[in-house]
């Protein structure tokens, strides 16, 4: 059978090269920091929150849709987690309530997008404010201490340290990346997401239930927003009402740096995974090589512009 090098493969190769170039720069600029394990330990504890969000987001983007509400859904689900834990004292119950909240928030998005037929960009601007507002009203600006959860098995499963060295959330991110890869590339669900994102008319004529696919995609986004919320609250054993703020653009940047097309129909899980690593390590890397914090956003911007330009050229060349 003849082989064709697909555009995804080219994009994945590019992002891996960009990743190694950036790390080469870090290594040369600050060998002391980047040859020691500490910085990687730090990355493994912080990157998975946006990493998991970005992986789930990849499906939304491939579908040709957008979800701006997930940072607020994350915050509200985290509040539910903290509040149920505080009231009931059972961390499993708290986790269940929190994940259910995420699913319900995703269903609300789906309802607005699929049934009421509001474009997802607009609908999720609405729910973004709504859930952030709900957090403000419910939490009244106050945080919730989660120290009570620290001795539980659930805590160990979520954010414990394997052999004292590997944060559990990093294992979660890696495992979910593998799971999402199979879901997108080797499962009927992923096949339908790709087809709907590519050509709705064709998908409809091939008997694919578009509304169902959309509902599932937005619902899983809500679920993983809640999961990321649980992980990030447990990591610091504290819920704070402004949680999730700052995740929106970094998560989207990770997806787009990864090479998933904003037009839908194409996407790469490996790309999103590497994109998350890049976005999550830039800040520390920039400081470590001796630049001031003022440089951070500028370099973020440069990396995004360069990587997205590379993809644009690849996409045009291989038509």
């Amino acid at each position: 059978m003849l082989k064709t090098v697909t555009r995804e493969t080219k994009i994945e190769i590019s992002i891996v090269i960009v990743f190694f170039l950036i790390y080469l720069l870090f290594l040369l600029g600050s060998p002391d920091v980047f040859t020691r394990f500490d910085i990687y330990y730090s990355f493994m504890s912080t990157i998975p929150f946006i990493g998991i969000l970005a992986l789930a987001m990849t499906f939304v983007v491939i579908l040709g849709e957008m979800d701006l509400s997930f940072p607020s859904v994350l915050a509200f689900s985290a509040w539910v987690f903290g509040k149920v834990l505080e009231l009931a004292g059972n961390v499993w119950l708290a986790a269940f309530a929190s994940l259910a909240t995420g699913v319900l928030a995703g269903l609300l998005n789906s309802l607005l997008i699929v049934k009421v037929r509001i474009p997802s960009l607009v609908a999720t601007i609405g729910t973004q404010f709504f859930f952030r507002g709900l957090v403000n009203v419910c939490a009244e600006g106050k945080g919730i201490s989660l120290v009570a959860a620290k001795d539980s098995l659930f805590y160990q499963i979520c954010v414990g340290r394997l052999a004292g060295m590997i944060p559990a959330q990093a294992i979660w991110m890696f495992g979910l990346a593998v799971w999402f890869w199979f879901l997108l590339n080797r499962h009927r669900f992923g096949a339908h997401v790709l087809l709907v994102g590519d050509n709705k008319d064709s998908a409809l004529m091939m008997g694919i239930e578009i509304d169902r696919v959309k509902t599932l995609v937005f619902t899983q986004m809500g679920f993983f927003a809640a999961f990321a919320g649980i992980l990030s609250t447990l990591e610091v054993t504290y819920f704070w009402p402004s949680q999730g703020q700052g995740y929106l653009l970094t998560t989207l940047a990770a997806v787009f740096i990864g090479g998933t097309s904003v037009f839908g129909g194409k996407g790469t899980i490996l790309g999103t995974f590497i994109g998350s690593l890049i976005i999550g390590s830039l800040e520390a890397g920039i400081i470590a090589i001796g630049l001031t914090g003022f440089w951070i956003q500028l370099i973020h911007g440069l990396i995004i512009m360069i990587s997205v330009s590379i993809y644009s050229v690849i996409l045009r060349k291989s038509t």
């Binding site: 096949a191 339908h192 087809l195 064709s202 008997g207």
Partner: peptide, 20 residues
Amino acid sequence: RALADQQSLWRNMFAGREET
């Protein structure tokens, strides 16, 4: 509009009727 342009031939061939 019969086919999804960005997808491979094999994905289009089995669109909506995937062998799983």
